[in-house]
Structures are given as C-alpha cells and as structure tokens.
C-alpha cells in the first residue's frame, strides 16, 4: 500500500513510520523539513490545499499525525481546515482510507469526561470549547461528513497519554495511556484492517492499554486486533 503520512516530525509520527515501513511504501511529509534515507519526503502545510492535493496524488491511504494545540489561528488552520483539505484532496485523488488521529477529548470533552465511565468511542462527539479539543473535534466532524458522502473510510484513532515503553517510573496513573510504539502499531492495524470488518465508513477507536475502564478500548481490541505489547502497570500498580 502507498501511504502518505502527514506530520512525521510530530511525537507520534516516527513511531507510525517505524511500524508501517515494512511492507508498505511511504511518502513522508511535515510542515518542517523531513529527513529520511529510505522514504520519499516532501514538505506540506496542511492548511495549504495545493500542497495537500499534490502530495496525496497516487496514494492509497493517508495518515494524519498533525497537531497544533495552542496557537489560536494555527489550531484551526491545522486541526480543522487541515482536515477539510486532507479529505477534499483524498476524495478527489481516489484515496480509499484515511487514518485521522487526535486527543480523546475531540470526542469525549468535559461534559462526558467529568461525569462518565465506560466511555465508548461511538458517542456523539462533544469536545467542548477548549481550543485544542474543539478545533480537533471540528476536524473530525468534517471527516465524518466526507465519509458519509463519499467512497472513503476514515478511521480516527484517539490517544491521550503516551509513555516510552522502557520508562518504568511510577506516577501519572492516567486512564487513557499507551506506549508510543503500541500507538504506532495501532495506526498500522487501522491501515490494514479489512473494510468489511468496519460497521461504517467513519469509525473511531480509543487507543489505550490501561484497565481503568473510564474509556473502553474493547472496540480497538476486537475490530483492529490491537494487542499492546507494553504493560504500563508501572504507572497504575501499587
């Protein structure tokens, strides 16, 4: 599969590349310069539609690891309008699968997270009004609408807390945590899962490896076959 990976210089990007580069052909992109001896690279600003149109040409799938958390203009440029440009270009280029990524509160914002347990990823999205969550949530809504209208699958992977697999320091007993390399593997699984295993053209997955049961990862285990190799028990065991 020819895969276009956006945001490879993000924290998550290199782990996606490591997990996907065996067996797939990758085109790597970021808004900053990308260095790779092995893969095709390009510089893409997701808020520039012409950049995105040129970069998705000939690709089978797109992975979006881009993120902007704080700047009030760039957050919408990247997280919201960037999703519009990614989806518009992907549909026009005949791309059949997009893997979008974001924080858990792009779906489960404060009105859920403050009160609820056993939260599944298929809840109606309510990110709230925080800049990061809201701009990502709006981008996800755009992805959902495109998937509802066109022959393209969008699989959105939600993350929150990441740990290095060899970091065994106690603390940060977080209910939505996964190791970086398991996160990269989840992206690969989302790229490779057969379309007939998906209930709809837009599916969301909670990607974590902890037993808190505040957020359910059952769908991720069952549909994607996610089997995290890293036990984060050092964070939550006494």
């Amino acid at each position: 599969m020819k895969i276009f990976v956006l945001g490879v210089n993000s924290r998550l990007g290199p782990h996606v590349v490591r997990s996907c580069e065996e067996g797939h052909s990758l085109r790597l992109a970021d808004v900053t310069d990308v260095a790779s001896d092995r893969h095709e690279t390009c510089r893409v600003d997701l808020s520039n539609p012409d950049d995105v149109i040129a970069a998705v040409e000939g690709m089978d799938a797109v992975v979006n690891c881009t993120v902007e958390r704080q700047d009030p203009r760039r957050a919408f440029d990247v997280n919201t309008r960037g999703c519009f440009n990614m989806m518009r270009a992907s549909v026009d280029a005949g791309v059949k699968r997009v893997i979008n990524t974001g924080p858990h509160f792009a779906i489960a914002g404060p009105s859920y997270e403050t009160f609820d347990y056993a939260m599944v990823p298929d809840m109606p999205p309510h990110p709230g009004v925080g800049l990061y969550a809201h701009s990502k949530g709006a981008g996800q809504e755009i992805c959902r609408i495109f998937a509802s209208q066109h022959d393209i699958h969008v699989l959105t992977l939600l993350f929150y807390n990441f740990r290095d697999h060899d970091d065994t320091e106690r603390g940060n007993n977080h209910p939505f945590a996964v190791s970086w390399r398991d996160a990269g593997d989840a992206v690969r699984l989302a790229l490779e899962v057969e379309a007939d295993r998906l209930y709809s053209r837009c599916e969301v997955f909670n990607v974590h490896a902890v037993p808190h049961a505040v957020f359910s990862n059952e769908k991720t285990l069952r549909v994607l076959g996610f089997n995290p190799r890293d036990d984060l028990g050092f964070a939550w065991r006494k």
Partner: peptide
C-alpha cells in the same frame, strides 16, 4: 485564496472567536 478554505475558516475559527 480559496473560497472553500475561507468558508471553513470563517465558520469554525471566526465563529469560535466570536463566541469565545
């Protein structure tokens, strides 16, 4: 530059800023 991008920007970012 592009009308579709302008509309996405206006209805998301600008509306967000107005309400905020």
């Amino acid at each position: 530059g592009r009308v579709d991008n302008a509309q996405v920007d206006f209805h998301s970012r600008c509306t967000y800023n107005l309400l905020k």
